[in-house]
Amino acid sequence: MKNQDIIIAGFGGQGILSAGRILAYAGMLENKNVSWLPSYGPEMRGGTANCSVIISDEAVGSPIINIATSLIVMNGPSLDKFEKMVSSGGVIIIDSSLVEKVPERKDVDIYRIPATKTALDMGNATFATIVLLGKLIAATNIVSKESFEEALKKTLPAKKHYMIPDEIKALEYGMNY
């Protein structure tokens, strides 16, 4: 797929914004045009967080996503809010450890992955976003696994690089789920 308009949404503290940033970075490393836009409005004060990531072969027009090609959700309210914004034929990836509800949409590909549980089993809750991004990469081919790994190196501070092998395991878990 050439273009992806991706919304990643959940609670603050889950690493939503960083996940979007790694993804955008990976796109940039493949010489694609990318944008990353965080929510900073009143909803942020309410504890929810989301970001919009666009990865495209063409120049990115508006960084604001009205219709998403992919959605990753890590809490119930975000599913309610963004489900209807996904285009027909698009992808919805849900952290089933945190979201019990099943989407009503029948015209999109839906993946439910126990990302947070998996991450906790691996000993680090922040890997949950990586698991979900793994599924996104597998489902859309928007960036390669290699670019993602490179983006991790670029975006993580050096003192956290020791975590990268485990993050790759989390990514592979998501890709293969």
Binding site: R21, A24, M28, N33, V34, S35, W36, L37, P38, Y40, V60, P63, I64
Partner: peptide, 10 residues
Amino acid sequence: DGVLGQMMEA
């Protein structure tokens, strides 16, 4: 504006 200030781009 807030979009330009907050967004990341290459």
